[in-house]
Simulated assay, not measured.
Amino acid sequence: MSEVLTPGSDRTPRTERGRKTLRRLLEAAAQEFGEKGYYQAAINGITGRAGVALGTFYTYFESKEEVFRALVRDMSRRTRQHVAEAVHGATSRRDAERKGLEAFIAFTREHPELYRIIEEAQFVAQDAYRDHYRSFADGYSRNLSAAAERGEIRGGNQEARAWALIGISVFMGMRYGLWSDDLTPAEVADATVNLIFEGLERRS
Rank of each mutant, 00 (worst) to 15 (best):
E3R: 13
E3P: 04
E3K: 14
L5G: 02
P7G: 01
S9V: 07
D10F: 10
R11D: 02
R11C: 04
T15Q: 03
E16N: 09
R19H: 08
K20A: 14
K20R: 15
T21L: 15
T21N: 09
L25E: 03
L25N: 09
Q31R: 14
Q31P: 02
F33W: 09
G37L: 00
Y38A: 00
Y39L: 09
A41I: 12
A41Y: 12
A42H: 12
I43S: 10
I43T: 14
N44Y: 13
I46Q: 09
T47G: 05
T47P: 13
T47D: 07
G48S: 15
G48H: 12
R49E: 14
G51Q: 13
V52S: 03
G55D: 13
F57P: 11
Y58E: 06
Y58S: 03
Y60C: 02
F61Q: 10
K64P: 13
F68R: 06
R69M: 03
A70Y: 11
V72D: 02
V72Y: 01
R78L: 09
R78F: 00
T79H: 14
H88M: 10
S92F: 05
R93P: 05
R93E: 12
R94F: 02
D95F: 06
I105C: 00
T108M: 15
R109S: 01
E110N: 03
E113K: 03
R116E: 04
I118R: 01
E119N: 10
E120K: 07
A121R: 06
A125E: 06
Y129C: 01
S135G: 15
S135N: 12
F136I: 14
F136V: 11
F136W: 15
A137M: 07
A137C: 07
N143C: 02
L144W: 06
S145T: 14
S145E: 15
A148I: 09
G151H: 04
G151E: 03
E152N: 02
I153F: 08
G156I: 03
A160L: 13
A162E: 06
A162P: 09
S169P: 07
S169N: 11
V170K: 09
G173Q: 08
G173V: 07
L178K: 13
S180I: 04
D182A: 01
E187P: 06
E187N: 05
A189Q: 03
A189M: 02
V193Y: 06
F197Q: 04
E198R: 14
